[in-house]
Every structure is written in structure tokens, then in C-alpha cells.
Design a protein around this nucleic acid. Structure first.
Lengths: 330, 330
DNA sequence: GAATAGAGAGACAACGTTGTCTTGCAGTAG
DNA sequence: CTACTGCAAGACAACGTTGTCTCTCTATTC
């Protein structure tokens, strides 16, 4: 009733089970005439080897699958990173299982465990939880992990991160160089590591210039509310540094709504698809999610190929792209 | 050396293999004292059941995994659709494996086969190949398939598509209603089914109005070349209908470069992230990739739950969103 | 023509788990 | 005290495949 097995093929071809196995696995010690008969039977029955049984017998636990846990598979940053990982995996015959974490620590743990149970050969993880110590229990020993976008706590492994701190600092300096003194920082919740680093970079540059800081945390998705509140201050900022895709979009809408988009300077952390076509075009500190994905996948495959050195931290540089919005003067 | 097995747990707890199996599977016919000892041994050894062996024995081929083959996991349409599928799958404890096809028929076949071999419980596929007949041989019998975004040929299954033809027609009529007579259609290669439908919708509306058609096919990624060539015609079009994300972006760049973005009307098929913030804001026929993903996933899970009716065609409506660029007059 | 080597093909066990059958034992009724 | 019931726990086989061992047959050598 189910799929045909090797036994069915063997019966049909009038040979033994083992001979079918040999033919299927391309062993050379089979009589060409028999091999032909076997192949014919395979084709007629539509036989396909049962991967589960093969793995079980071989105790070769490579499934040709890696797990990829991202913030949100639908968000452009994650999507491009995902695609880059896939492009590294495909030539190796490896497939990618993905999961979205939505900044939810429980979901991180749940999905990491589920993927381990499915025997993914390796895991690329953008941490959402505060601690990744649980991985030691859950992962099969020897399963390599690479952290991407954010560093991990409680588990040592290769890590790929952007130059968040220096990137945010250079964005801030850029605004300072254009005469701004009241520069507001709009960031995500500080429990997110990248949000902390970017805030730190902002503080570095502001302290360097002897300027007071002004920081706001985004409450929800794409909300223009924070920006609107900032603009309502007695002495509103003359420049904004937005450090998250959703926050940037919210701020752009708020500025446009207030008619201030040509007055208040803005530098965004992370590039936006049509940023160059807006008026003014948006100055960004571009991350390179494709490079991050490539680097993470390569590091993972090196480990899978047996590399066994100390965990590395791979840094992907950010690039300041002046386009107009960051060059508005105070 | 490898992971501990049930036998290891049994030895450690001083019970039989089968008793461990019973405890692990939550059967009630076990002495509580023994069950406690078994659970302790499981915890101490870090035992995790081997999913492959379980499946083999149970001949219950549900892996709790579905395959999702999309045009390009990095592209916003695919990414949002992917995320919607994941959101339907997650509450069911199902995980998603993805692959990008890049309009490559060989890759479609290769990945579909690979996923079938891995026993994904079902497959959601945005066809790239001209014919999906191969699925009959490759898929395990009973594995449901849902086609999404594009209809399939040679294999009958549920299909989720947008109202491509009527959407393109209404976009064209919208431009005609704003006084345009020379309206150019910019589409993808006609071997892509959605490209054909949209062209058909354009032709419907133009014929209806007794207007001559002007069609161009996009040669490559994000190329502004086609648009530039159109604008160089003796009698250039006064309006453009762009029917693919990449083509829209190329056209926007070309119009901007030529300084004609406030003169030549444009309606785009498929929404763009910052379309409302451009000047003029871009009028679009919005697709709803999230709704398409949800519908496809739901159809798949219905089949997995045993629904056995005729293949359905589910149509997700498109919405014309006037924002400015499509209301420029001739 | 007999002994030997080599190659092709089959028998058998095993991978880690679960379904079925059997065993052992306590408790109850006659 | 014996026979029976019921339940917990173990023995065993099986899922579909591959590694190892053994067997048979042909070709080669003296």
C-alpha cells in the first residue's frame, strides 16, 4: 500500500534485496545485466530509497538539512540573509529549514529543540533569548551552531555581527559634522543586543562632541507615535538616528505627516529598498545582510567539514551611504 | 559515543527497553515508581528519542515538515508569503523547509524531489517549470500539494492565485479613465503564467477602449533600460503599467533619471514597501501575499487532515490603491 | 584435471524504536 | 486452597536499509 521497498524491487527484478541495495548505491560489483534489470524494476515501481531507514542503518546522522532561526522571515533583512544562506547551502546539496522568532525567547528554545530533534546538521541562529545555555542540552553533541546578527550568551560558537557600535557612531558623527546638536536616538528595546550596541555607538559620538543625549525606545511596530512625541518637545531634535527598519519607516511617516521631512535630518541604520527614490533620499548606514548570511553559512560549513578551532567572531562592516536626508543642516 | 538510546536509559533505570518506550510515549500502564526512575534516567543521560527510528517503526510518515518552494526567498513577495505559511504551520507544530527557484525549472524539479525524499508531509509550490507532471512520480502517494501564485500544468491540485487578469485590466482602465491613450505594458517573460495573465488583462482593457497596445518585456534584473528605450520612442507612452516588482523599481529609477516621474503616469502591479512616501506616491494594484500564503497553508492542512474533494482554485483579490502616480493625467 | 583465486550474489544481523504477544504476579471469588 | 481475572512488565518481531560474512561459480594456473 505504501511506497515500494527494496524488497518489492528485488522480487520484481528476481534478485536479492542486497543486490538492489548495491545497484541503488552505485556499487560496481554487480553484473551489468542484473543492474539493468534492477534499474528497470526501480523505474517501473517508482521506488525511492527511504532516507530514514538509510540514516538509521548507516548511523550517519547527516540529514543534509540546516536550521535557520531568524527574527522574522518576512522582514527584508531576514529574507535577504535567508537567501544568502540558501545560496551557500544549495551547491552542497543542503536544504534550509527556517523559523521566525519574533523576539520571543520561548519560541527560540522551542524551535531550536524541534530542529535538533529533526537532526538538522547545523544551526544558524539570530538569538532572541537572553541566554543560549539550553543549547548544550538540546543539541546533538557535535552539531555546530553559528550565531548571526547578535552575539549569544552562555554558549560559545562562531558569531557573525555587523559593526553596530562603530556604525551608529559614524552616523552620529556625520550628523554632528552637518551642524546638528540636538540629535535624537530612536532604538528598539535595550534587551536586544544590537539595539544596545547601536545606542552605545550613539553615546560614544555624542560624548566625544560634548553633546547631551536624547534617546527614545520604540513601543510597537511601525508606530509613528514616538517620532511625533519627539517633534512636540519644547526644543525638538534637529536630527534623528533611527536604528531599526520598522522604526525608520515609522519615523519617515511621522516626518512626512508633520511636513518636516526636508527640515529634520535623518540617518537610518539598515538600508531600505527604495531609499534612494524618496525626497530627500534617505542617508543610511547600510548593513550587508547578504554578506552576513554568506559568512554565517560558510562558518557553519567549515565546522561541518571538521574545522575545530576556537569560536570566531566575524565582523561585517557597515557603510555610510549619504543620499540627502542625513546632509540636511541644522 | 553517539546519543544515548532507549536501551541505555533502560539499563540505567534497571527496567526493560519497552518500559522506557511506554514512559516516553506517556502510556498509563506503568507503575509510577518505575516511571519516575525512567524519567530520572532520561534526564541524566539527556536522552532524546530518535525521530527517524520512530517513523520507521510506526510507518507513520508524518514528519511535521512541509516544503515551500518560492521564486526567491529574499524577495519581499516571497518573504511575506513564507511568513504567512509559517504562521499557519507553527500552531500545528509543523515546520517549514524553503527553497528558491529563481525561475529555473530544473531547480524546481530538483528541490521538489529532494523534499519528497525527506518526507515533507506536503508541498506548497510556486511553479517555475512549464509542467509539473513529474510530481506524480516523485511525490509519495498521498502527499498533498498546493500551488501558489501560479497555476500548474500536468498535475491537478489546489491552487491559490491572485486576480492577475482582472487586476491588470482594472489598472489599465484606471489609466484610461485619466485620459491616457498611449499606455505601455512592461512585463516579465511570457513563459511565466502570471506575466501572461496580466498581459491579457491589459489587452482586455485596451481592446475594450479601442486603443493600440504597446508591450515590452523586461530583459534583466532591475534594469531601467526598457523604460529608457520606451521613453525614447517618437511617440512615447504617457502611462506605464509595470507588472513585476523588479520591473517597477527599474521603471521608477528610469523615470526619475529622465526627470519624468511627475509627467508620466505609472501603476504598479504588486505593492512596494515605501510606495506611499515617494513623490508622487505610487498607485498600485496590491496583491496580498500574506493572504495567499495563509490560504495555501490552510488548503494544505485541510488535505492533510483528510479532506478529499476535487482540486479547488482559490482566488485572492487584488486591490487598486490610488496614491498619485496613477492619477497623473495625459 | 585438480587446486586456487577472484568476483558476483545472497544470507544474516543490526540501526533505534514500537506493536503484539506472553509471562508473572497479586487480588478475588468459589 | 484452587481457579480465575486483571494488570504491569518483559520478550520478540518488525519497520527499510546497509555492513559483514559466506557461498557459489567461473577463470586461471600448474
Amino acid at each position: 500500500m505504501g511506497r515500494p521497498t527494496m524488497n518489492d524491487v528485488a522480487r520484481r527484478a528476481g534478485v536479492s534485496l542486497k543486490t538492489v541495495s548495491r545497484v541503488v548505491n552505485g556499487e560496481t560489483t554487480v553484473d551489468p545485466a542484473l543492474a539493468t534489470r534492477v534499474r528497470a524494476a526501480v523505474a517501473e515501481l517508482g521506488y525511492r530509497p527511504n532516507l530514514g531507514a538509510t540514516m538509521l542503518r548507516r548511523s550517519d546522522w547527516r540529514t543534509g538539512t540546516i536550521g535557520l532561526l531568524l527574527t522574522d522571515a518576512g522582514d527584508p533583512f531576514s529574507a535577504i540573509l535567508h537567501r544568502a544562506v540558501e545560496d551557500e547551502a544549495h551547491p552542497r546539496g543542503v536544504h534550509v529549514m527556517t523559523g521566525s522568532l519574533d523576539e520571543n525567547p520561548d519560541r527560540e528554545r522551542e524551535l531550536a529543540t524541534a530542529f535538533a530533534r529533526r537532526h538538522t546538521d547545523g544551526l544558524i541562529l539570530a538569538p532572541a533569548a537572553a541566554d543560549q545555555g539550553y543549547l548544550s542540552h538540546e543539541l546533538h553533541p557535535g552539531t555546530p551552531v553559528v550565531f548571526v546578527d547578535r552575539p549569544a550568551t552562555g554558549y560559545r560558537a562562531d558569531t557573525v555581527v555587523a559593526t553596530n557600535r562603530s556604525g551608529a557612531a559614524s552616523a552620529t558623527r556625520h550628523l554632528i559634522a552637518h551642524g546638528h546638536r540636538r540629535i535624537a536616538f530612536l532604538g528598539a528595546a535595550p534587551r536586544i543586543a544590537t539595539a544596545r550596541s547601536r545606542r552605545q555607538g550613539y553615546r560614544d559620538a555624542m560624548r566625544e562632541a560634548g553633546l547631551p543625549t536624547c534617546e527614545a525606545v520604540d513601543p510597537g511596530p511601525r508606530s509613528p507615535a514616538v517620532t511625533t512625541a519627539l517633534l512636540a518637545l519644547a526644543e525638538p531634535p534637529t536630527a534623528l538616528l533611527t536604528t531599526h527598519h520598522r522604526i525608520t519607516v515609522g519615523a519617515l511617516r511621522a516626518l512626512r505627516h508633520a511636513g518636516l521631512h526636508r527640515r529634520i535630518a535623518l540617518v537610518a541604520f539598515g538600508d531600505l529598498p527604495l531609499a534612494d527614490l524618496l525626497e530627500p533620499a534617505i542617508t543610511v548606514v547600510a548593513q550587508d545582510p547578504a554578506a552576513m548570511g554568506r559568512a554565517a553559512a560558510r562558518a557553519l560549513f567549515e565546522r561541518l567539514d571538521g574545522h575545530d578551532g576556537e569560536p570566531r567572531e566575524i565582523t561585517i562592516p557597515t557603510t555610510l551611504i549619504p543620499r540627502g536626508s542625513g546632509e540636511l543642516t541644522a
